[in-house]
Simulated assay, not measured.
Amino acid sequence: MTGTTPRRRHSPAVYRRRRIVLLIAVLAIAGIVWLLIAQPWAGAATESTDKSDESRSQNTAESLPVPSAPVSPDPSSTGAVEGAVVEGTPTPGATPTAQPCVASELTVEPVTSADTYASEESPQFSITLTNNGPDCTLNVGTSAQSFTVMSGDDVWWRSTDCQSEPSDMIVLIGAGQTVSSATPLTWDRTRSAVGTCADGSRPRAPGGGASYHLSVEIGGISSTEPRQFLLY
């Protein structure tokens, strides 16, 4: 047909550039779709949360360390024991972030291994601590624990009289959590006093059905009610 300008064909280079642009666009769309489906950031977030939870569990109280008493020349006659921190207690030096515990929100109870003891039996004592408030921190180390045995108004034995190498341990106590002594502390049924810790001839507590009471303290918080037991 006359008067019509022939259509010009593009050079091969133009077609190659168009194909490259199209390929890039397809790859970009595929990448976006993969990100939406795979969500690779979710794994990193989960790992971070797991590490945070693990760190928290290491700082959370599971059991209480036991105050230690020096070993006397004749352990069989005095009943002195060495306290130990069991596996599962918080890592010393950890730094919990909750606020310090409030005394009115904690319940501290003395625990005895039995209600009555025969003449050849030595009483064993523990502490139970319950947090009735929110998460909080407390020094539950051996330096903050005290066991006291009384008969009427007469103080017969204090765990702090002969305690060796007391230490601090600040731990996180969860809301509603109850923590107990890792291992009971044994009383040798003798009268304690500073300066008589290695004395195997200390006066022995009377038996025959005599009544005694155990009171405890931890982190500056005392038990509200003593625990009664009988010695025979």
Rank of each mutant, 00 (worst) to 15 (best):
W157G: 12
M150L: 04
V140E: 14
V140A: 15
D154Y: 15
V108C: 06
G133F: 03
N132P: 11
T137F: 04
V111K: 11
G133H: 04
M150R: 13
D115V: 02
G133A: 09
Y117I: 02
E109F: 00
S122D: 10
G133R: 06
T142K: 00
S113W: 05
R158T: 09
T148H: 05
F125N: 01
R158M: 15
I127P: 01
T112C: 10
F147H: 07
D154M: 13
S126R: 05
W156A: 06
L129C: 14
M150P: 00
T116L: 07
D154W: 14
E109A: 14
F147K: 05
L138N: 08
L106N: 03
T137N: 04
T148N: 01
S151P: 12
S143I: 05
R158C: 07
G133S: 04
G152C: 00
Y117S: 11
A114Q: 05
P123Y: 03
V108M: 05
D135Q: 15
S146R: 01
P123V: 05
Q145V: 06
E105R: 07
Q124S: 11
V149K: 03
E121M: 10
P123K: 07
M150Y: 07
A118S: 13
D115Q: 07
W157Q: 11
N132M: 14
F125W: 06
A114G: 01
T130K: 15
T116V: 12
T142Y: 00
Y117L: 10
D115L: 08
S143A: 09
T130R: 12
G133I: 13
N139E: 06
L106Y: 02
T112M: 12
N131D: 14
C136S: 07
S122W: 02
E109L: 12
C136E: 05
Q145R: 07
A114C: 03
T116M: 10
T130Y: 11
F125P: 02
